[in-house]
Nucleic acid binder design. Structure first.
Lengths: 266, 266
DNA sequence: ATTTTAATTAACAGTTTGTTATTTGTTAAT
DNA sequence: ATTAACAAATAACAAACTGTTAATTAAAAT
């Protein structure tokens, strides 16, 4: 019946030297933000999806060459025994960006033997979405530092530490999926937004031909069950932040849509 | 700049006693199957979703009372340093069911401090789908053993070890989600199947009112892009396995459907 | 004032939905 | 054999929704 023993049964008659245990348990976070750069007044700005990376030091504290030194890596760190990997990610993200209440999601465990040459290190990967205005101030504060935002294009050119290239590829795949399947876009947008802003956010991440076609998107969007028109005193609230003509403001509702491949449109 | 150190930078000037490391790294697997029981010839059988659990021994090898003894738990075990948690899950599942090539998916990491009273044990949770015919023979082989299949109804009545109640709840939630969003149903079905079988599998897991309505489901299903009619020599292949009248056989195609909440039907 | 731009509405044919009814082939019972 | 019962497949049809193009509205720029 040996094969039916669970971890803890095995631990019962378990002496600490008999089973090897991991040498480190860490959390890494792929921090995404969308940077808008205004090109012209009353024009929708150019939006770009960016990822925050840190550059590993060339030399360690003793002045010795650092392993994977000078390469770029996801921010992260050790999980402490009194917290979960998720909590560690949240704590570390707060330390690095100074922003709280961010959307964080655990999306994978990276534990392939040899991913770190020197030890058995497990990493829990998370993604986080930071509204751009919150990150921009920090970015300006310490420019030319070892923390930088890169477009995905740029990231693909960088030398990345460990298996972070894979983790980043997975993170990108996941946020694309979640962007289409959940109301993740909410985390990139202000409380109240205009349909073209929503479309912009979606297209920055997604490249979906249906969303790209204005006539289709703007026709269907107003009746999506998870957003609603903003009203003030029974009047429709509008904005001309991005366009010459006033456009309707929307906000997300609490409704969490559920779709299925069995009654979808193809 | 301390806050920007990644796990491995920290490991550089890291002495093994300074940072606590996990005491155990394990994989658990929620093994699901659908059991069909024929009630009448030429009638669709009653289908039930079942979960495989093992009962923890009352006493350990030394005859001492076992922690969480006699409670039911997910099968699982330690991850070895030369494999990933996913590989461990796959290996253990094979050991327990004797079946290979199963659909396994990692869906969560359970590392809340205190989830195991005695040590810092991390569990990676996976779900697996076993076609019923493959599991049934094993089940018959050692009946009245400490391995049993339970309906979800029954599971909710059981005393479960550790945080497995939570893990199981999450697993159920995930397979419901994946059942509607991916072609997961494929793993519960034979290569060739009839629409009512597909509907039966979906409803066993999902309880979706749209799928439940025959008129809607049978009308739309034939044109779903991820299944196709089975042909032999240019003739439609039919079967009357489940009904008096011959029904069209279908099989899954390679097409992986992608749906989005932005152009879905509500 | 006139032109330009962008958001919104309107219009319309073609398609897909939800629904109900009909047809077809098969089993089971008289 | 004839008939009743049944389930799969098909037909029919109004209502809703799709993709698309055109018209309308309002503010900005000239």
């Amino acid at each position: 019946m040996d094969k039916y023993k669970t971890e803890v049964e095995m631990l019962e008659n378990y002496d600490a030297n008999k089973y090897k245990t991991p040498d480190g348990y860490t959390s890494d976070i792929a921090v995404f933000t969308i940077i808008s750069t205004e090109v012209e007044k009353h024009k929708p700005p150019v939006k770009e999806l960016k990822l925050m990376l840190i550059q590993r030091a060339e030399k360690d504290a003793e002045g010795q060459p650092n392993v994977e030194g000078s390469k770029w890596a996801l921010p992260g760190g050790f999980v402490q025994p009194d917290e979960t990997a998720f909590e560690a990610a949240s704590r570390e993200l707060e330390e690095e960006t100074g922003v709280t209440n961010l959307k964080i999601k655990h999306f994978g465990t990276y534990d392939k033997p040899g991913r770190d040459k020197r030890a058995w290190i497990i990493s829990n990967a998370h993604y986080a979405i930071v509204p751009e205005n919150q990150l921009v101030k920090r970015k300006a504060a310490d420019d030319a530092s070892d923390v930088q935002l890169f477009t995905l294009e740029e990231v693909s050119q960088l030398e990345l530490a460990f298996d972070h290239e894979q983790i980043i590829a997975d993170a990108i795949w996941i946020i694309k999926k979640d962007m289409g399947l959940t109301t993740l876009a909410k985390n990139f947008l202000p409380e109240e937004f205009v349909l073209s802003e929503l479309q912009g956010v979606l297209l920055t991440v997604l490249d979906d031909s249906w969303i790209k076609l204005d006539s289709q998107f703007f026709r269907k969007a107003p009746s999506l069950p998870f957003i609603e028109k903003v009203m003030v005193d029974g009047e429709l609230k509008k904005s001309n932040r991005w366009s010459k003509n006033k456009a309707q403001l929307y906000k997300f509702t609490d409704y969490e849509p559920f779709v299925s491949i069995y009654n979808a449109n193809y």
